[in-house]
Design a protein around this nucleic acid. Structure first.
Lengths: 227, 227
DNA sequence: CAACTACTGTGACCTATATCGCATCCGCGT
DNA sequence: ACGCGGATGCGATATAGGTCACAGTAGTTG
C-alpha cells in the first residue's frame, strides 16, 4: 500500500497538502484492480466514488443508441476521474474501462465531502482541475469543427506523447495501448480513415507504427500538420 | 442598481447565500453596458473578471486562424461566464460579444477569491456549476461525432427553447436573437446547411421561422429528430 | 503448432455537407 | 421613400470521410 500513498500524494488533488491533512482520507481509500477490457463502471450507473489512477490506463467512453462509441479521454497514472457526480449527483454519463491492467484508488464521495469542506485548498484544487478540463474540452470541440481527421490524429498523438511519451534512441516512443479502433473513437472518426492517416504519416517518415504504439520521428512536422 | 441586486441574488452562484454574506461582494460589483455586436473581451486578453448577465444575451466565440468562428454558448440573464481564468489563470480562450443590448455585472477576481475562501458553499456552488458545464460540453462533443446537422440544429433549438422560450398562442416562441450564421457556428455547420435544415423543419410544419427567432409547433417530433 | 479471433491495411464505392454562386428580401439610415 | 448592406433562400458542384468488402497479420488459447 506504500506505492498507493506515493502516487496519491503526487496526484494534483492532494499535492498541496501535508501528511496530516490527508491521513484521515487515506484511511478510507480502497484499491481496485482491473484487467484489460474490464469495466469499472458503466453509463447510467449510480456514481458515488471518485478514482485516481495509480498504474495502468483507463478509457472513458460514451456510446450512442446504435452502439457506436466515443472516447472522452484516456487517463494514466496520477489522473482523476468520476468526480463529476460528486458535485452534480446524477448517474454516470460515461463508462470507465481499463485499457491495460490497471490499479486504481477509489474514494467514496461521503468520505470526500467533509474532507473538502475542511480543506479549502482542496476545493480550489478541484476548481482548478475542472477549469483546466473545461478549457481542454472546448479545444477538442473546436477541433471537431475546424480540423480534418489527419489533423486531429496528429494532434491526438502529440497529446498522448505528452502524457505517455518516452524519449528513445530513434524517436519519441508513445506506447498508448490503444487499438486503431479506439484511437479512431478518440478523435471522432472511423477506424479506416485513421488507419489511412497513420499510413500517410508513416510514409512521409513522420512516425513509425508499432503495436499499440507509435514512434514519433518528426515532431515539428506533426505539429504543423495538427494546426 | 436595484435590478442588479435582484438578478445577482438569483444567480446560481449566490442563491444559497443571505444578504449579509454577499453585501461586501456586491459593493465591488461594476456594471457594464454593451450594444449589439460590441466585444466585452477577446481571445488572448488577460482575464481578471467574471461576469453575470443581468439582461440581454452574450455569445462566447472562438476563432480559427483562417477566420472561421465557433460559438461555445449563448448566455442569458442569470448566467455566468469568464470564471475559468479565476482558477486557471491564463489568457481568455474565447471572446465575449453582445448578441443584443446587454447589461452585465462584473466581479473582479481579487474581490472574489477571499469571498470564496470565506464562504465554502460558494466554492461548492462553483464546483457544481463547472461539473454541470463539463457534462453539457461532453454531450455537445458526442453530438458532433454522432448526430447529423439537422439533428444538431433540432437539439440546439430545443436547448434555446429551454432558456429563452415563451409559451404563446400558436406555439413556443424562441427569440434567440441569432442570425443563421451564428446558429450555424453554434452547431458547427455551414450557414447554408443550417438554412436548409430549418427550411425542411418548417416545410414539415414542425416550426415557423421568424426574424432571429423560431416558433416551435411540434416539439415532440423535433425531439425525436434530435436523437 | 493449429486454428480462432482480433486487429490492421487498402481499395471501391456513396453520401452528407462544405463551397460557390446568385437571387431575393428585409431593416435601417439618410 | 429610396437605396444599401447584411441576412436569407436555394440550386449546382466538389470532396472529405464514412461504409463495405476483403485480405493479410499477429496474438492467444486450446
Amino acid at each position: 500500500m506504500d506505492e498507493t500513498n506515493e502516487v496519491l500524494r503526487k496526484a494534483p488533488l492532494f499535492e498541496a497538502l501535508d501528511e496530516d491533512a490527508t491521513a484521515a482520507l487515506r484511511a478510507s481509500v480502497s484499491e481496485v484492480r482491473l484487467g484489460r477490457g474490464q469495466t469499472l463502471f458503466a453509463e447510467g450507473d449510480e456514481g458515488d466514488r471518485l478514482y485516481v489512477v495509480l498504474s495502468g490506463k483507463v478509457k472513458l467512453t460514451r456510446s450512442a443508441v446504435d452502439g457506436r462509441e466515443n472516447l472522452l479521454a484516456v487517463l494514466g497514472p496520477g489522473e482523476m476521474f468520476g468526480e463529476l457526480s460528486l458535485f452534480d449527483p446524477r448517474p454516470r454519463t460515461a463508462s470507465a474501462i481499463a485499457v491495460t491492467d490497471t490499479v486504481l484508488a477509489g474514494l467514496g464521495h461521503d468520505d470526500l465531502r467533509p474532507f473538502i469542506a475542511s480543506q479549502p485548498q482542496v476545493a480550489l484544487q478541484l476548481l482548478k482541475a475542472l477549469a483546466a478540463r473545461l478549457r481542454r474540452t472546448n479545444d477538442v470541440m473546436s477541433d471537431l469543427v475546424f480540423t480534418d481527421v489527419p489533423g486531429r490524429v496528429a494532434k491526438q498523438l502529440l497529446e498522448l506523447a505528452e502524457k505517455f511519451g518516452k524519449e528513445g534512441e530513434d524517436g519519441l516512443h508513445v506506447h498508448h495501448d490503444l487499438t486503431q479502433e479506439e484511437l479512431a473513437q478518440l478523435v471522432g472518426a472511423s477506424r479506416e480513415t485513421v488507419n489511412k492517416a497513420l499510413a500517410e504519416f508513416a510514409l512521409r517518415g513522420w512516425l513509425r507504427i508499432e503495436a499499440k504504439a507509435v514512434v514519433l520521428l518528426d515532431i515539428e512536422r506533426m505539429r504543423r500538420r495538427a494546426r
